[in-house]
Design a protein around this nucleic acid. Structure first.
Lengths: 146, 146
DNA sequence: TTGCGTGCAAAGGTTTTGCATGGCA
DNA sequence: TGCCATGCAAAACCTTTGCACGCAA
């Protein structure tokens, strides 16, 4: 259930390389396709979808459903283990996705598990709100408006 | 920013009534449309989409992206003002929505604000995971499988 | 050579949008 | 009366699928 199994092709090599080189980020299918199109030889979108599905199945890559309407995001699993341990903050204002590694927040999951009998899935959970910049912007606006 | 604001129409009334009558469940757009079609007067799907968007914006209804490929689900949020103050836990297994009032979790929001310069919006944030029952069920299954 | 992988295009499903009409206030 | 809301259809998404060809093993 874990080994690659399939053929090794130029396309797959380049898709996987892009994922590993951006292990810290969440990538959309379009980002992958666009990156590869920027190179000498583009890769078909269906190929990207199919290979990503496969990688997810194998556990090498994790799929996230973060965006509101948008599509899925993918992240190389090498760093996903780390992502399992921390929270994701998504700014409603600018859309930025922040990975927060913080021992205090780690305790939160423990607390919820122990006191509320609930096991948080960090790969599915995103805290929505406003980043510093956008919060300041809104504050300013509301002062002007009110 | 919180009041209904728009016109009161037959369609909106019926959409909202269906949501409140099923406050314990999460409903897909098609479920809403199908239910209303079953009545004397159907309601257009775009009307449902537009009004649900509006209700979500106002915080009266929550939108969830649970299914893998599927569409969004909606659930009546009840008293929004109260919900602004606490966290929500959504079980991936059974869909239950738990409102958690807890002073410890209140501190979390404070911590994120103070240490990570991020203002959490409780009306938009949901912690996904497994409730006690579903966690036990999964554990059982994995024992059987492996 | 065998069979999987690729890429294009078409199909599938969900959500959004344009526009004329209808209805609330 | 002046907008806003509605509904239909079309468009705009994201994703999957069918099929002929290409390529790894």
């Amino acid at each position: 259930m874990s080994e690659i199994g399939g053929y090794k092709t130029r396309q797959r090599e380049r898709i996987l390389r892009f994922l590993t080189e951006n292990a810290g980020r969440h990538l959309s299918v379009d980002e992958v396709v666009d990156h590869l199109r920027g190179q000498a030889e583009p890769v078909g979108k269906s190929t990207v979808y199919r290979y990503l599905d496969r990688l997810v199945e194998q556990g090498l890559v994790r799929r996230y459903f973060l965006g509101e309407g948008g599509g899925a995001c993918y992240q190389y699993a090498g760093d996903v283990e780390r992502c399992r341990e921390h929270f994701h903050l998504k700014c409603i204002g600018c859309g930025a996705l922040l990975h927060v590694e913080c021992s205090y927040l780690d305790e939160v999951a423990q607390h919820v598990a122990n006191h509320h009998q609930f096991t948080i899935d960090h790969t599915k959970t995103v805290l929505y709100g406003l980043c510093e910049t956008c919060a300041a912007k809104r504050k300013e606006e509301s002062v002007c408006a009110g």
